[in-house]
Amino acid sequence: MGGRDTDIVLLDENGIRSDGRKVNETRKVSIKAGVLKNANGSAYIEFGDNKILVGVYGPRDVHPKHMSDTNTGIIRCRYHMTPFSVGERKNPAPSRREIEISKVIKEALEPAVMLKQFPRTAVDVYMEVLQADGGTRCAALTGASVALADAGIPMRDLVAGCAAGKAADTIILDVNNEEDQAGQADLPIGYMPNLEKITLLQLDGILTSDEYKKCLEIGIDGCKQVYEIQKKALQDKYFTTGGNNND
């Protein structure tokens, strides 16, 4: 963070970013629901150059038994980066960073999933990052909520994830890897669009309070754009295969 001494031009004089986007534009997002046969629910998401596969199991028995809760179900998340997801081979063992991201994604999904309906059970969410390009936690969160809905687990709302940030002294939407490395701040947001509630908010870097407000505003706007794609992914799987328009 804060590395201003790079020679990459993050923003040119026309307000175009290093990958050709405008400041308030997200990368191309595409989601496909139900891609895995053996998982109860699944999703594959491409968020720019991020490629993430998510599988959901459950509700199912909790093992080890001592983790189960008699009052509510529990949700367990595993965010993992494959060794080939980054330029230099990544050690497949869970790193400090992956453990943290697993935890924040779990906490970002918990308010959305109605776990009280399934006491003594667990919902397991496995996220495999096949290719990483900055903003994987938001992408993984977005994919995970589609996979949960695909598994038929009752939810209050889908959770959409998108980051905002600051690079070249400008507030930008959906920070990519270069902007994350060389930029000044990164603000990942998890947002439930129908309930208008934030479930994930982290900030890496320094923002003034005005900048923060602007970041949050365009970040939420980004989440709403991502939500439309989530919605479409579920509609494509469940509603477009015949049926809908022939009554």
């Binding site: 695909d150 038929g152 687990i153 939810m155 209050r156 709302d157």
Partner: peptide
Amino acid sequence: IISSIIGLSDIRDGGVRVIPLTGG
């Protein structure tokens, strides 16, 4: 009244339910 699941909404006699299309 909000759906918590993917399915078909069904409004009958003032009650609203959703018939699920997936799930255990």
